[in-house]
Each structure stands twice: as structure tokens, then as C-alpha cells.
């Protein structure tokens, strides 16, 4: 990662990401991309990444991270069944494109030997 702060949209020379990076991220994100999309995203995600890298110029050595702003911790409830929030099997399946005998159909993930 370079510390480039070039924010022009036509940036080509200092692209921080390669198409290999994009392929890897697309696999992690489970996003199917064709070659043209991958090329375009290499440039555009690169622009964003370069721009947000501006943050590296700020000193944050003794700063704690903030992940949420409510100030609340350990919000608990009784471990009881709330029947008003329960779906019937029919409701739970109502938006699935593929069902079989009351189950969701998923793509095979294990290969037969």
C-alpha cells in the first residue's frame, strides 16, 4: 500500500490494487465478476483505497477504537421463547426460490469421490 493521496478519478500509474488483488477480494466477498468488471473495479476501488489512506497521516497511537456509540454494554434479555416472533415453516420458506419437502435447497458444497 502506498501513501498516495492522488484523488483523481483517472489515476492509472499509482493504482494501489492489482487485478490479482481484486480477484482475491472478489472470492472473499463471493462476488462473481467478469473481466471487464474486475478491470473497472481495480481502478475504482483503488481510487477509494488511496483516498481513505489519508487517515494514515493522523496520529492515533494511544487512541482506543470505537466500534459502537451507544455506551451500553451487555444488553440482555430473559432466555424465553417469544411466540410473536416465530415463523411457521411455511412463512420461513415463503421467499425461497428453491424448496423441497419443507426445506431450503442449497447448492452442493461437497464433491463425491
Amino acid at each position: 500500500m502506498t501513501g498516495s493521496t492522488d484523488t483523481s478519478s483517472n489515476m492509472t500509474k499509482s493504482d494501489p490494487l492489482t487485478t490479482n488483488d481484486i480477484d482475491k477480494i472478489a472470492r472473499l466477498a463471493n462476488l462473481p465478476l467478469n473481466e471487464a468488471q474486475a478491470r473497472e473495479l481495480t481502478e475504482q476501488v483503488g481510487v477509494t483505497v488511496s483516498y481513505v489512506s489519508e487517515l494514515q497521516t493522523l496520529a492515533t497511537d494511544n487512541v482506543t477504537e470505537t466500534s459502537q456509540v451507544t455506551g451500553m454494554e451487555n444488553v440482555l434479555r430473559e432466555d424465553e421463547i417469544d411466540t410473536t416472533r416465530m415463523f411457521s415453516q411455511e412463512e420461513a420458506l415463503s421467499n425461497a426460490k428453491r424448496t423441497h419437502n419443507g426445506f431450503f435447497v442449497v447448492d452442493r458444497v461437497l464433491e463425491e469421490k
Binding site: 500500500m1 490494487l17 488483488d21 482475491k24 477480494i25 472473499l28 466477498a29 476501488v45 483505497v49 481513505v52 489512506s53 487517515l55 494514515q56 493522523l58 492515533t60 487512541v63 482506543t64 477504537e65 470505537t66 466500534s67
Partner: peptide
């Protein structure tokens, strides 16, 4: 996904959370 990926998490996501505190 890039900002959260291994090797970049600290430089991006964690850094942004710190600046959030600022």
C-alpha cells in the same frame, strides 16, 4: 472486504475506528 481482509485490517478498519474516537 479489502479493508477487513487479513494484513489490511489494522491499517484501514482499526485505524478508522481510532479516528472515530478522535
Amino acid at each position: 472486504t479489502y479493508a477487513l481482509s487479513s494484513g489490511y485490517y489494522d491499517a484501514y478498519y482499526k485505524k478508522a475506528q481510532k479516528v472515530r474516537s478522535l
